[in-house]
Amino acid sequence: MNTIKMKKLIIEIIATLLALALFGVPFYFVVVNSGKDAAAAARMTLSFPETTQYLDNFRQVITASNSMLIRAFFNSFIISAATIIVLIVIASSAGFVLGRRKGKAVNIISFLVLAGLMVPPAIVPTIWLLRTLGLYKSLTGLILVEAAIMFPFTLLLYRGYVTTIPRELDEASLIDGTGPVKMFSLVIFPLLKPVSVTVTIINAITIFNDFVHPLYFLPGAKNATVQLTLYNFMSTFSTKWNLLYADVLIISIPPLIFFILFNSKIVSGMVAGAVKG
């Protein structure tokens, strides 16, 4: 018995060390190297910096190209927040009706939404449409496109939760003579709060980390988002790895804070969305 326990312990220790080496060391590498000078970082070693210059490196990254990064953070926050608000409004109300109703129309709608989970968005026609509407290269345009792209996933989370809310509540408010809008906003929507929280966290991380859609739909220097600046810094700082790592570090801080605060919510939300999809 004791040898079995011993064996288990050894396996556990080896597994933990292996996981630390594979998944911990890469992040440790970024943290130590973002505090070095350019020459030391270029040697790409795991050693601790001999002379740390974190603040200086961060300052250089932040002030580069007329403090582009500050503008980018501002834009990314606006895009994420606005998209999430749009998504919560449209997906909660749609999820409510689709979760309650049955029939052919609902099946067709569900199919169109499910298809949106898999099919890639059509890039150039979207740009053409945004241009026609005067929304190309505008935050509003990107927000609407991001909302359309994240809509299927968000809707599925809401629809799944709506089916767990008893219909007796609807009937009760019908007897009270409450209309649909009032009933939904005062009775149902507050009950959907757990989904709204999950939706906020997951979409915040996804949209903040999004690179492809800003790349296509929001070109131009004043429209930079954090991921676009990080990408552009690759050529600006191609020989200054310390600054590149410092940039990676700064840009990973918001998702990191989310991860620390909402770890279990992120994981359960991702699983719920994935399984229902």
Binding site: V86, V89, I90, A91, S93, A94, F96, V97, L98, I109, L112, V113, G116, P121, T126, L129, L144, V145, A147, A148, I149, F151, L155, P180, F184
Partner: peptide, 13 residues
């Protein structure tokens, strides 16, 4: 209730 979602999803996707 489907209208706001429908407009955005139909138009932009």
């Amino acid at each position: 209730f489907l209208l706001p979602a429908g407009v955005i999803y139909a138009l932009f996707f």
